Simulated assay, not measured.
Amino acid sequence: MWDIGVNTWVWTSPLTDDALAELAPRVRDWGFDVIELPVEHPGDWDPHRAAGLLAELGLAATVCLVMPPGRELVDADTVAETQDYLRHVVDVAAIVGSPVAAGPAYSSVGRTWRIDDRPEVYARLRENLAPVVEHAAAKGVRIAVEPLNRYETSLLNTVEQALEALAGLPDEGCGLALDTYHVNIEESSPVRAIRAAGERIAHVQVCANDRGTPGNDHQDWPALLQALADAGYRGPLCIESFTPDNATIATAASIWRPLAASPDALAVEGLAFLRGASSAFTR
């Protein structure tokens, strides 16, 4: 039912033109439908060059955004430059044909603080995200806002919180990105949370509960996939895991040990599992 994708973070960070030229043909030859492209810093890779390469290979693209320290939508002194970055990611998504720009588009990953007035902070987030959402809608792209686990943020951890925070922002420019890793940690019922997200689900990232190979874990994949089908989600399932070779990203994602025999094995075995698990569902 679903196209299957894989994020280049499985192998490398930051993505470059040369790395994409080497990875994309392998991803296509393994049988993936989609390759997910992170935009860590504007200019790391050329979206026009990437669009041409993926068109030649017959691969679709999704794009994800990155929120390191200094990118904040809830602090007045960094809002404008963060909005500029997010608009850039939207433009990149439009160039490569991605329907989404997905990620935690609210505060830097790893930043946690006690939030005494959550409605006020959510109102500020909506106000500051709204111009980006308007830009995205005009480009035919949705900002897919991703709740993260409690160790990576204190702002949006659950689907319920994300729906509250985004209430009033238009569906055509804004939705949710659900990551099975975070959902497994934060939701008392992942299935119920997926169903609650419903038509606001704009993107789905998948991995094992330990960030490893999908299917090599304790997650109830038949139930998760059934909930996605019931919610009407028809976008791709994109494997997201991380290379331990980049110290910054490995530390941010707490990758302290190998998560599979190799990055290639994680991708290929995850693809085989997801193809089989989703075969019972029809479009």
Rank of each mutant, 00 (worst) to 15 (best):
89 V>H: 00
80 A>S: 10
145 V>K: 00
63 V>N: 00
77 D>P: 12
94 A>W: 01
55 A>W: 02
110 G>S: 12
87 R>S: 09
81 E>Y: 00
156 L>C: 02
84 D>E: 14
158 T>H: 04
149 N>C: 11
146 E>Y: 04
129 L>M: 10
131 P>N: 12
76 A>T: 11
128 N>I: 09
121 V>C: 08
86 L>F: 06
114 R>S: 14
60 A>K: 13
89 V>C: 12
135 H>K: 03
160 E>A: 15
53 L>E: 01
113 W>H: 12
89 V>Q: 01
162 A>K: 01
56 E>M: 02
87 R>T: 11
92 V>W: 02
89 V>R: 00
72 E>I: 00
159 V>H: 01
70 G>C: 06
151 Y>T: 13
169 L>G: 04
75 D>P: 00
154 S>I: 01
147 P>T: 07
62 T>F: 06
108 S>D: 12
170 P>R: 04
139 K>R: 15
136 A>Y: 10
121 V>E: 14
57 L>P: 09
132 V>E: 13
56 E>G: 15
53 L>T: 08
156 L>Q: 07
101 A>D: 10
112 T>G: 11
162 A>C: 12
95 I>P: 03
84 D>M: 02
71 R>Y: 01
54 L>W: 01
123 A>Y: 11
77 D>N: 12
171 D>H: 15
88 H>M: 01
53 L>R: 10
113 W>S: 14
155 L>K: 00
160 E>P: 06
141 V>R: 05
85 Y>M: 06
87 R>D: 06
141 V>L: 06
66 V>R: 07
105 A>I: 10
99 P>A: 07
147 P>Y: 10
87 R>Q: 10
150 R>D: 08
123 A>I: 09
155 L>T: 11
104 P>K: 05
64 C>L: 08
170 P>I: 08
92 V>D: 03
150 R>Y: 09
113 W>Y: 12
110 G>C: 12
154 S>Q: 02
120 E>I: 02
101 A>T: 07
105 A>Y: 06
62 T>G: 01
146 E>C: 06
119 P>H: 09
99 P>S: 08
129 L>N: 08
67 M>L: 08
127 E>T: 15
118 R>G: 08
104 P>D: 06
152 E>P: 09
107 S>K: 01
108 S>R: 13
118 R>W: 13
114 R>D: 15
63 V>W: 01
